[in-house]
Design a binder for these strands. Structure first.
Lengths: 342, 342
DNA sequence: CTGAAAGCGCTTACAG
DNA sequence: CTGAAAGCGCTTACAG
């Protein structure tokens, strides 16, 4: 593989000049520029990024730190669409994505491995469990960072800007709940995500409660079941909830809603005639079930795209740090909800 | 961030010694080793990979070159499970994955971008379209490489070993076809992938034809429709095939089979009573449809794992280049197939 | 067993 | 506008 020396020799200039031409520095005469570019062509030269990186320049790599184990990640359609958005932007801008998932036993390992490399221009992180502080090291490293999730207050740096991007979980849950209430439902079961896991879950819970309150409908803790976002956990949650005879169930993601739908069907409950069902995310399959799933659409791809765009402009110093960006959600009404049987 | 000089100073040794300790070279006295390790701890030092890379050592990064655009990739459950397998192994061995997808207009871009970096210990590629030679540059670079797919004969290096890993597509298609034939079906529609796209498709076609032949059932070209592996294309293919009154359809992946199932249902054909359906892959959802989908299971995760393992041992010079590894497939019989209505 | 020195391939002040 | 030289942080013969 050709090096910058080969190019310099061929173009009869110094390596410094080659470097300048390649980085588009002004003040290089057109004729030498031309000669250099020609040599670059002929040798099909491209600079080794490791060398660039070492001498303090960009690496054209952004890290993606994912505090989940691969088997979890690759079965979560929502997260995958977020990552797709990131990859789309990276791809367009000729950046590569350095992927770092976590060991099952240690969510933080995703961050640590990435940092060790010291080889990325910036990092996109997914928010980790409430209360943990994965980014302390990251913060200390001073590397550009954007989080997909909610701002976390860091003891170490209470005033720093979080660069956080997330959807309007509160409003999504509020609207979903009010949709059911407007249909006359008063016994609304809830399938939540793990307690104390992520801010998004807390926000959705808040939306659910505020929705009930707006209709003067009491919050009933026994109507809340906790899943882990898998279809199976939605199935189990439905097993717990249905004996309490809710007329509707609101689930914090679509997969769990589908699990609940399956269980309902197995015990002979018709959706939506005897049970209304609302999900969250609007994954691809939500419109493929029978009936289609009413759900709160999150702009997943867009979330990833915006995170990547923000990160790239932070890296390029084209924009300033920010605290948070909130993306709107949208209630998508399909066949799985209907007014309560009278 | 601490450098090797900081560590050397603190441990009162040379940087050479630090380097040796860190790379586990023998012939370092236990006491200095201990002192160095201590300093490493105290400074929480980790070597910058860019520097390592430059001085000719490992980068602990493997490249994953995917000749598809992100929107395609992230909607293909089979490919995602393959990648999951790769990531699992990488993760375990403390390797990172450098992701490179293609621009829509140019599948090769995935390879080129990766190569430019010159920053990976090895590359895993997905087989590209039959006839194209994406790996010429890669081959020239001499970098370790494993392909998920079939060996492609390279004009440039006709005798090189391909390091290719794939499933036994021929046998899978053969068994699927014979399963239908054994159930009495004689009009078996086929939903293929794009023609001249990948060896796997050719092999499955061969399996289908040989299956028919074994039952003295003629191959009828008009019963073959071509899709692009999306559910929608399976739906369209069924639109074309059903007017020809096949009693069964064999689809080259599960998503297209599900599309066909949807169309069949829309036109009032019951599966499996009036139409038997067989897929390929056994994605997660194949068991979730109603009825469950009979399909040819490919060990997707395993495919990725083995590719990663092979690559890592090639990198470590623990094993030799190979031509191909073929993984067995398994016919999974569920509710979507039944003997032909008499 | 340990260390001085060269080298990996770039970029960036700095001088001209 | 151009180039000589130092430096980025490591590793690896080589000498001791």
């Amino acid at each position: 593989m050709a090096t910058i020396y080969d190019v310099a020799r061929r173009a009869k200039v110094s390596t410094a000049t080659v470097s300048k031409v390649l980085s588009n520095t002004p003040y290089v005469s057109d004729t030498t520029k031309e000669r250099v570019l020609e040599a670059v062509q002929e040798l099909s030269y491209s600079p080794r990024l490791a060398a660039r990186s070492l001498s303090g320049n960009r690496t054209f790599v952004i890290g993606l730190a994912i505090p989940y184990a691969p088997d979890y990640l690759f079965n979560d359609p929502f997260l995958l669409q977020v990552i797709r958005g990131v990859e789309e932007i990276a791809n367009e801008r000729d950046y590569n994505l350095l992927f770092s998932t976590a060991l099952r036993s240690n969510p933080q390992s995703a961050y640590n491995r990435l940092l060790q490399h010291g080889y990325v221009d910036g990092v996109i992180t997914l928010e980790t469990a409430v209360g943990s502080e994965p980014s302390r090291k990251l913060e200390a490293s001073g590397i550009a960072r954007v989080t997909i999730g909610y701002p976390v207050s860091l003891d170490a740096a209470p005033n720093r800007l979080a660069n956080a991007i997330h959807c309007d979980d509160y409003r999504g849950a509020l609207e979903a709940t009010q949709h059911l209430l407007a249909l006359g439902h008063r016994h609304i079961g809830l399938i939540s995500g793990p307690a104390n896991f992520m801010m998004a879950i807390d926000e959705r819970l808040r939306g659910y409660r505020d929705g009930l309150q707006a209709y003067n409908s009491p919050f009933q803790p026994e109507l809340v079941a906790y899943g882990d976002f898998t279809l199976e956990s939605g199935y189990s949650a439905a097993q717990k909830l249905l004996p309490l005879s809710p007329t509707a169930i609101f689930s914090f993601n679509d997969r769990m809603a589908m699990g609940a739908m399956r269980y309902a069907r197995e015990v002979g409950l018709s959706v939506p005639d005897q049970l209304s069902l609302v999900g969250f995310d609007d994954v691809d399959l939500a419109k493929a079930t029978e009936p289609g799933l009413t759900t709160v659409r999150q702009p997943a791809v867009n979330l990833g795209q915006i995170a990547a765009q923000k990160l790239l402009s932070l890296i390029a110093h084209e924009s300033e740090a920010f605290d948070e960006v909130v993306l709107p959600v949208e209630l998508i009404i399909r066949g799985s909800t209907r007014s309560v049987a009278s």
